[in-house]
Design a protein around this nucleic acid. Sequence first.
DNA 1: TTGATTTACGCAAACGATTGCGGTAAATTT
DNA 2: AAATTTACCGCAATCGTTTGCGTAAATCAA
Lengths: 330, 330
Amino acid sequence: MTNTTLKLLAQQLQLSISTVSRALKDHPDISTATKEKVHALANSLDYEPNAYAIQLRTQSSRIFGVIVPAIANLFYDSFIAAIEEESRKNGYALMILQSSNNPENELNNLKIFRQNRVSGVFACLSAHTHNLEVYEKMSDREIPVVFFDIVPKDNKYTKVRMADERCAVIAAENIIQRGAKRVLALFGDPALSISQKRRQAFQQFMEKYAPKTHCTYENTNSSLEAETAFKKHLSKIQKFDTVFAMTDEILIGVMKAIQALNIKVPKEMGVISISNGFIPSLYHPNISYVETSGYELGKLAFVQMLANLKGGKTLSELTVDARFIEGGSM
Amino acid sequence: MTNTTLKLLAQQLQLSISTVSRALKDHPDISTATKEKVHALANSLDYEPNAYAIQLRTQSSRIFGVIVPAIANLFYDSFIAAIEEESRKNGYALMILQSSNNPENELNNLKIFRQNRVSGVFACLSAHTHNLEVYEKMSDREIPVVFFDIVPKDNKYTKVRMADERCAVIAAENIIQRGAKRVLALFGDPALSISQKRRQAFQQFMEKYAPKTHCTYENTNSSLEAETAFKKHLSKIQKFDTVFAMTDEILIGVMKAIQALNIKVPKEMGVISISNGFIPSLYHPNISYVETSGYELGKLAFVQMLANLKGGKTLSELTVDARFIEGGSM
DNA sequence: TTGATTTACGCAAACGATTGCGGTAAATTT
DNA sequence: AAATTTACCGCAATCGTTTGCGTAAATCAA
């Protein structure tokens, strides 16, 4: 079956294409009688406007591009879920591509976005992207870009991210409140600004408000590394009584070690992490964590996008606030 | 900056649009000299073909639509990751929409797909969709639909899914091999055909090959229900020594109970589940599971799609095989 | 009755690319 | 030198919509 077009409708109704087009969108120029006839036929023939023709004509695709390092990720997929919801409400669709943390893929993806004349791009920088030229190209085309999570430093971009420093500080506060004597603080890839920010904020806060608490810092790049680091430090003479995990990945490693060694939480060991909440809920007792919601971030990013689309430039960095979620691990 | 078009290039080079178009795609009619000039200018002006114009002209969008109940899901996101990879390799892009298990959303999504004249649709039925009319509409338009995971019963559709019965049987085999005396088998929503299939296959196998093993069956709809069910049955006089979890969700509930009660795995309790592997790897010891890989399923679905696109109709049901992954929980 | 408005519709030019069908000059063959 | 081929390129229609402008007929005002 061939697709129903305006032309087809027009022929069958002995009307011009323009009349049919206008009738379909309730243009005041068209009489009620005609409108009804047109609508009736359009329905019975299952008319669906051709999005490409519209986009070509109107120069607006109503499609957003999304770049994430990986779709299969607890944080990003909730982010995606959020903008998907908002997009649908606002008559936009999503084109989602993953960079796999590879700048080359990132480049290709952006190209696809340009070719598809996306109305806007949500971008999470791949881990080691330093060249932002590609994104400049988008701006040249007046395609707004909202960076999220992993964002560039330059202030000329629109960015939304978690309040990384706040997260770390909240965690530190709770550690102090627990009365921890010795703590092991595990952070992620030291090359990532997110790791740097969190570690710095955490460290500063601890040094300032709990100078007597002994803190050991370490950067680990995987669950396994975290697990190993945990075990290594536990075998020392001075055992630590509290562990802080900067990410879910690290928490997973820590918890495997804890289970393996049959350590009682929170009696023998306090555990706190930064997470969106899913992983912490997997354990008994639930792990206390500072919440960073990909979902919230998505909502915020969408607001920024819309603002950008409407009123020119909204160059700013917004952060979604963090809050402490009490589990039973502290 | 306005977008570079063929027209613009043609003007600047004093050539016709058709010549420029052909030069860009290496048409033999065009001289090498001209080709070079065209390519040079196109590059320096960052020419990007307008996807909509192409799609309008060629009537092919090179975009696949994907419908999943939820993106934020360990199984579906690996499925999506797989078809995204393949799509990119083959010059397709993806448009991903979630149904949230709501047939109404499903309907709307399909509509968006039709309006965007997607080249094909990957669809996972929302939990309680029984009306497949919408999908018929796609077929009417000659848009191939590949169903995955939750698929319709009718054989006229192209489907890929996990080998559900096999999964259940493999699990049963391993339970028998462990020498289990009493087992608690937890399944999901009884309204879902996937639950029915797995339970039936499991039950039949156990009755046939281990009639003396005492099995308790239960359907649970959430982690919490699973946790409760586990605890309830454990409080009985005759304790069970092995538990089977049909899904990750159920496994999560079971493991929370196990942790809470400080039950030793595998000594006091054997645990086995069906999963894509992520959740089982979170615990110590790793949980043994029957692997159902969303990733594999995605690859398979893509093959089916391509076949469908090329050689007419490939109406068949393909299943991706399951295998047992040894953890330390049995 | 006549001139001024409204009402309700059609014409045609875009949007940007593709492609069949020619066309013309130069090169090659008779 | 005439005829034929080859190499290169342009014309124009087409995909399906949107939209500014034009205009006949109907309605209104005076």
